[in-house]
Each structure stands twice: as C-alpha cells, then as structure tokens.
Amino acid sequence: MIWELDFIILTLVIFSGIAAITVKDLLSAAILFGAYSFMMCLLWAIMGAVDVAFTEATVGAGVSTVFFVAAVFHTTRDSKD
C-alpha cells in the first residue's frame, strides 16, 4: 500500500469517470469507460486485492468494453448529452 500512488490513481479514476459520462460520442464513452475500469484495476492491485484486480482487468477492461462497442455498433454513436 503506497498512498502517493494510490492517491494519483484515484484522481485519474475520478477524472476518467467524469469524462466517460460527459463526452458526446458514445463510442468514446465506451473507450473511456474501459480506461476507467483499467485504472480501477490498478487501484485494487495497489490495495492488495489481487484477485479482484485480475477479475476487473479481464471483465471490466476487456469484455464489458466489447459489449459496449457491440451495443453502440447496433444503435447509434450520437448522444445529446
């Protein structure tokens, strides 16, 4: 547990979370959400939750981004907000 690293990554997590919900393009939102998940995975790895971090790296940053892209592919990329 290194608190400086933890603090920096927590800040990055919060900013990528804000970016994921404010960006207008849904495909960019999906990719930013993938980045958010990967930062979160790093955060958990720093806290010593290695199994949780491993799961998040495969599930959150991998498969759920693919699901988002697949859903955007069959709907629309445009968003009003």
Partner: peptide, 21 residues
C-alpha cells in the same frame, strides 16, 4: 440526469465499481 440510455448504463457501472472500491 443523463438523457441517453447508454450513458445511464455507464453511470450504473460507475456506481457499482464505487461500491466495490
């Protein structure tokens, strides 16, 4: 407050990961 359904789903996932954190 978001109008788009995919944005709402992203919000739901952020909430979930916050609870996990």
């Amino acid at each position: 407050a978001k109008n788009n359904l995919v944005k709402k789903i992203i919000g739901m996932n952020i909430f979930q990961t916050a609870i996990i954190l």
